[in-house]
Structure formats: structure tokens, C-alpha cells
Computed example of a mutant assay.
Amino acid sequence: FQTISTFFVHDLKNAASTLKLTLQNLPVHFDDPVFRQDTLRSIRATTERINQIIERLGALGSKLELRPSPVDLNLVVEQAIENVNGMPGVEFAKELEPLPKLMADSEQLRSVVTNLLLNARDAVGEGGRIEVRTGTQNGYAALSVSDDGCGMTTSFLRDSLFRPFKTTKKKGLGIGMFQTKMIIEAHHGSIRVKSDVGKGTTFQVLLPLTPDE
């Protein structure tokens, strides 16, 4: 129960981070009607997500429970990007190929994509670049998130990256990548990472296009 409840705390922290970023940018671009419209849409989507998290927290059990339904992975990616977009000074690129729908929990997949995007944002800082791609690979839907940020050491990748409460961030909970891996594996998928210190990191997620029998 404690580990799963920590996931919800982490998701709420991400939602709060999204709202904070949006509000920080609002005074600078307030006179832009397009930005105001995007901001209202982002705030609305984030508050809806908070309500969904609270609802699921109320029905919390001792293990991660999925609510599978036909899911458009590209739509999940677009929603996650919209929620965390507005990163000041960060170049954002995406290349989303048409994909068949997955049988998956859309809310949990959104947590995965959000974790990867926020992780990339923290790695690059201002002036960095983040690339998001989707496609297919050997019967799997493939999602990759790449950044040109600080990168991670081989020892951190081996010993700490996917373990709970291990982080290089001063204010991090150390739960995001552990949660991400657990959600992906619950969907019978896998996650891979390549990283070079000073050059950047790429996470690749593979999810089966048809559910395991």
C-alpha cells in the first residue's frame, strides 16, 4: 500500500509542477490570446487529472490495478505534452506515426509519458532540446523520449535509476522511474535507456500491440 500510495503522491507532485510552470509563464504571455486559450485548456486538463488521481486514490488497493480500454498512444502523448508544454527556453520536437490502438490504462500511460517528459525537462534546463517519437517495432508500439541534457553515469543507470527513492534531483522523490517501469511491465511492455554524461539520454518504451494471451 505504501509504495502504490507514493505513486499517487508523485503524480500529484507532477500535476502541481505543471500548474506552477503554467502560472509562471502566464504574466509574460498574458496579452497573447492564443497563449491564454492554451493556458486555460492546460489548467482544465490538469485539474481533471488531479480529480482522477484522487478518485483512484480512494479506491486504492495493495497493488497496481489497471483499467484497460482501447487507447490511442499518440493521443496520450499529445495530452501529456500539452500538460507539460510551456517549458521556457526548451526546444520541443515530436514525430508521431499512426498507430493501432492498444489495450491499456490511459491514465497510467499518461503518468509514464509525463514522468519521461518532466525527467527530460529537468535534465536539459533552459536552452535544451527534447524529442518525442512514436512508431512500431516488431509487433510493439514504440515510444521514445530523447534529450540533450546532462546524462547519467553508468553506475547510476545500473544501480539506482529504476529503484525507489534513488534520485539525482535535489527536490525529487526518487519514485518517477520506478513507477514508470512498474506501469510498463504491468502492461507486459519494457523500457530501455541509453545515456551519456554531458550528451543526453534516450528512453524507449515498448508496449505490445495485442494483449498477451
Rank of each mutant, 00 (worst) to 15 (best):
D11C: 07
G174Q: 03
L209G: 06
T210E: 15
T201W: 04
A59P: 01
L109F: 03
H10A: 15
N85M: 12
M177S: 04
F7P: 00
F165K: 15
M182P: 09
I184F: 06
F92I: 10
I184R: 06
A120I: 03
L21Y: 06
G61I: 03
T3E: 14
F7D: 08
V205E: 06
Y140Q: 08
R44Q: 12
V34C: 05
E82C: 10
E126K: 12
N74M: 06
K63H: 14
T18H: 13
A45P: 01
F35A: 07
T180N: 03
V28M: 09
V197A: 09
T6F: 14
A45I: 05
T18N: 14
L102V: 06
E48M: 09
G125I: 01
E131W: 11
K63C: 10
Q108R: 13
L57R: 10
L143M: 04
L116H: 02
F178I: 04
T114R: 10
R56E: 10
N25E: 14
M103V: 11
L102K: 00
P98Y: 02
E78K: 13
L40G: 11
R110M: 12
Q37T: 12
F178S: 01
P164W: 05
D196L: 13
R129Q: 11
P98E: 01
T22G: 11
Q2D: 14
K166R: 15
L23T: 08
L117N: 04
G139I: 05
L12E: 00
R44D: 15
D122W: 08
D212I: 12
N115C: 15
L57V: 09
G174W: 08
L19G: 04
S155A: 15
G151H: 06
G189V: 02
R36E: 04
L57K: 08
G174S: 02
L75F: 09
I184K: 05
Y140G: 08
T47Y: 14
G128H: 02
E126I: 11
S144L: 04
K199Q: 11
S190C: 14
V124E: 02
V113W: 00
N74Y: 00
D105I: 01
P208G: 03
Q204D: 10
A45G: 06
M177Y: 07
G89K: 04
G189S: 03
I54Y: 11
A123L: 07
S190D: 07
F178G: 08
L102D: 00
Q137I: 10
P88G: 05
R121K: 14
I175N: 00
L66Y: 01
K13C: 07
E48V: 11
V193I: 06
